[in-house]
Design a binder for these strands. Structure first.
Lengths: 258, 258
DNA sequence: CGCTAAATGGTAAAATTTACCAAATAGAAA
DNA sequence: TTTCTATTTGGTAAATTTTACCATTTAGCG
């Protein structure tokens, strides 16, 4: 079966393999060198940008489904994934704003109007993180485009996707000090300057360059190595690694205040 | 239509009014006088305790649906509600562990086996809070029982409901200092001792009786009134109220660390 | 009028965060 | 070789916040 046939079959019979009325939308954050971006797509038949999304196979857990959706666009397996909020309500997707008549004229969408896809759907929000310099976005044949957009220049998105981005970013920021987020964005060995830039960029604010290492050391999240890296004409910085045990412990303790 | 007929119709045609494959389960926390409890039910036809739950009407937002589900059991409108996590996966509800053959012999469940209810369902977790001394649990006709259980004596529950309780409690605790949780559990005017007991009970640990007021005052969450309450043979304590504006502000600021 | 139990003001020590100064240093340029 | 530059990093003082506890106040009771 070729891709088009496969998609026609998805429209007609997808409800047999996937759970109807439930989808997953992913905010895929990409970080590299002081820049934080997210992945947005223009979908075939829709006029505007939206988050990568998809349905849950009946045999999959939600995490597995999210993982598959993310892999389709980034071609990276096993990205760090986190569920952050579920979105619903009768006004989430306004079908009257989608020109179904026009869409149905495109051969693949022939049977869309009467399909299981045209019904109220709740969306489970996940966020993922990766180094955007390592991944080449894949539009696939469903999307006309798939590109990285700077987090501070996100245009108006389709459906409730702007709200999703906002909530995902809030969650990402609140979890930065106890989830292994940075571990997924830096190499095994990294310098203080690198992790400092990462934290500043994700949190969107300045962190004192001399106090930041003390905080990380105090929290015990990173360990200084007895190695340095050669960085050209300046003093060679020490290398550090993550203390994975500490992250794990911080995670178990939870976020309970006081 | 009587209640039984109505339920038979729900089994047969409910998918027209409700969104299939999606339900809401609620951890309803009840607090009173140093005790924290949750509401558990024994459902007709099932052997064990579980959380109050229900489906989402196609015309409702998720919050409205959760509100309705909570109202059915507590007969209280407008309880404080919070979505905390969504649960899914093929192993959530093990239909083979439910004796459908036996169940189908009960007249109301006649058409259950082939109904829209017997299919994989993801559950959106909400928690609610109330003063359990003010509400009389309503089993309704679907449940054989509906009672308050102490949070530290929760038995083994059906499905993944123990996990749900655990996550809900974690969320409740983490939100206690910036969500108006206590406002929903104390009268308009309250004493330091009362709110102190509330915080200790929900967080499950001791908080120094002299430092606690200072913390609350520092956060600006409560305001001292120029009134006292007569409490018998001891010094009359001052009354306090919540500073609702501050809570609102704390909420907007989010939980971002550092 | 003293007694009791609860409420609360106060304060010192400990812990943590914030703000900067100044020294160390690797390679490039003079 | 020496000087220069940009960066890394040790250190420290001040400010803020948390923690631990002592001592005083007070309402009603016997």
């Amino acid at each position: 079966m070729n891709a088009l046939k496969e998609f026609e079959d998805f429209i007609e019979n997808g409800y047999k393999t996937y759970i109807p009325h439930v989808c997953i939308d992913c905010v895929i954050f990409g970080y590299h060198d002081h820049r934080l971006k997210i992945l947005l797509s223009e979908l075939e038949g829709l006029n505007g940008l939206c988050l990568p999304g998809g349905y849950i196979k009946r045999t999959d857990t939600m995490d597995e489904a999210a993982s598959r959706i993310v892999e389709e666009r980034t071609s990276i397996k096993g990205l760090y994934l986190q569920q952050y909020k579920t979105f619903g309500g009768p006004d989430r997707v306004k079908f009257n704003e989608i020109d179904l008549d026009k869409l149905t004229k495109v051969p693949v969408f022939k049977k869309l109007k009467s399909s299981w896809l045209i019904d109220q759907t709740i969306s489970i929000g996940y966020y993922a993180i990766t180094d955007f310099s390592l991944s080449k976005p894949q539009p696939g044949f469903m999307a006309r485009s798939c590109d990285w957009y700077n987090i501070d220049k996100i245009p108006s998105l389709l459906f409730d996707h702007n709200q999703m981005v906002k909530n995902a970013l809030q969650t990402l920021r609140s979890q930065l000090y106890y989830q292994p987020i940075a571990q997924n964005l830096l190499p095994e060995k990294f310098t203080l300057t690198e992790i400092h830039a990462l934290y500043e960029t994700i949190l969107g604010k300045k962190l004192d360059i001399r106090n930041f290492p003390k905080k990380m050391a105090f929290l015990g999240l990173i360990t200084k190595l007895n190695e340095k890296r050669n960085i050209g004409p300046h003093r060679a910085p020490f290398l550090y690694t993550f203390n994975k045990k500490k992250y794990k412990k911080a995670l178990e303790l939870g976020v309970t205040l006081s």
